[in-house]
Amino acid sequence: MSLIRIENLARHYVMGTETVHALRGVSLSIERGEYLAIMGPSGSGKSTLMNLLGCLDTPNEGVYELNGENVARMTDNELADIRNREIGFVFQSFNLLARSDALHNVELPLIYAGLPPKERRERARATLANVGLGDRMHHRPNELSGGQRQRVAIARALVNSPSIILADEPTGNLDSKTGVEILGLFEELSRRGNTIIVVTHEEEVALHSRRVIRIRDGLIAADEINREQRAVVGGAAVALSGITPLFIA
């Protein structure tokens, strides 16, 4: 069974008198452990697809099965629980809570999952250490560099051991060197068995994935295997030294 199965997914928005068809019927299936890039120019519908994949939005038509569950028909509370359990978001602008330190930011999904404080803290610590921020746990976002902030965000995405890591332009706000480091981290996570979906408009970023889906005008224009996958070696290995089986679990 596929991790994600999408059939004829359509989403339109009504803006005043006009109806905007953001997605016009997309079918797709994604297997567990895939490293996938969704590409497309702005206005192509890739953000809409990402919102649907991330259970932030529900489609007007079509089927979206995640782990065999039809997400398209779920209530708001059920969607919130699915986001909490199954999906880890990584955003372009990091989206950390500015007033909380790194540890608390990473703990946040576990709070909503209802874990006891001690266990929460332990897991958050371990996850932060795994992305190489063991010595930055009590720093606030404004005391961290862009790369470090994105690592905190990745740790937050990972801490609940989700089925999918959904990254929206994860290197968009980073310089190229830091961007490469983050991509290396994704590669390592992928190698450990995580399913990663990266939404981007940069070819450079997409080249690191193993499968590239191109969206245009609300439809899939191309779905191709990336035969010459680019790898980042070295940086990632350093970043992930001391990794625990947590991610695989």
Binding site: L56, A80, R83, N95, L97, Y112
Partner: peptide, 16 residues
């Protein structure tokens, strides 16, 4: 607003 968006994205229910 943004904080609320983040919380909702990582799994906070409306009630929370």
């Amino acid at each position: 607003t943004r904080e609320i968006g983040i919380r909702r994205a990582i799994g906070a229910r409306k009630r929370s």
